Computed example of a mutant assay.
Amino acid sequence: MSRQLLDDIVEHARAEAPKECCGLIATRDGEVVSVHRARNAANSALKYVMDPMEQYKLQEAIDDAGLDLGAIYHSHTRSDPVPSQTDINLARLGDSDQPAFPGTLYLIVGVKSDEDDLRLWSIVGNDVQQVGLLVTE
C-alpha cells in the first residue's frame, strides 16, 4: 500500500474521531489502488456500520473499475487496533462461520494516541490472524 493512500485512511480516522470511521480498499492483483471512504451509519465511537446502499454503490464502483475489494477498514478510537468481538461478528455471513466477504482483509486504524497504529487482519469465522502490511513510498 502506498504511503499516500495509507495517509488518506489515517486522516479519515483522525477527522472522524471520536467516532469510528469506515471504508473500502480496492486492489488489483493484491496491490492497493484506491480508498473509498464511507459514512459510519452507527455514528458511534464503539462500532461502525456501513449504510447498505452506500456500501453497495462503493462495491459497484470498485467492480466497474475492474478492481477487487481487498480490505475493509475502520478505526478504533479508544482501544488497540485488534478485532473486537463485534468486528469478528461483522466479518461473518449472518450467524455462520463463513466470511461475509471471502478473501477480504480488515485494516484497523488505532488513533487513541498521537502515534498511528495500523494493523491488517484476516478474519474467517473465529480464526483471527494478523497479516503483514507493506507500505511503499
Rank of each mutant, 00 (worst) to 15 (best):
M1K: 00
L6R: 00
E11P: 00
H12Y: 06
A13T: 01
A15L: 05
A15T: 11
E16T: 06
E16D: 12
A17S: 09
K19D: 13
E20Y: 07
G23T: 09
I25P: 00
I25E: 03
I25F: 03
T27Q: 05
V32P: 00
V33W: 06
V35T: 03
H36G: 05
A42D: 01
N43M: 12
S44P: 04
A45V: 02
V49A: 07
M53N: 13
E54V: 02
E54M: 04
Q55W: 06
Y56V: 12
Q59M: 14
A61D: 08
I62C: 09
D63Q: 14
D64F: 12
A65E: 10
L67T: 12
D68R: 11
Y73V: 10
H74G: 10
S75C: 14
H76S: 14
H76C: 14
H76I: 14
T77F: 11
R78H: 15
R78A: 15
P81K: 14
P81Y: 08
V82I: 15
S84C: 04
T86M: 11
T86H: 10
T86I: 12
I88W: 01
L90V: 07
A91V: 02
D95A: 12
S96G: 13
P99Y: 05
A100T: 06
A100S: 10
G103C: 07
G103Y: 09
Y106E: 04
L107D: 00
I108H: 03
I108S: 05
D117W: 03
L118G: 01
V124P: 12
N126W: 08
D127Y: 10
Q129L: 12
Q130T: 06
V131F: 07
G132L: 12
G132S: 14
L134N: 08
V135D: 09
T136C: 09
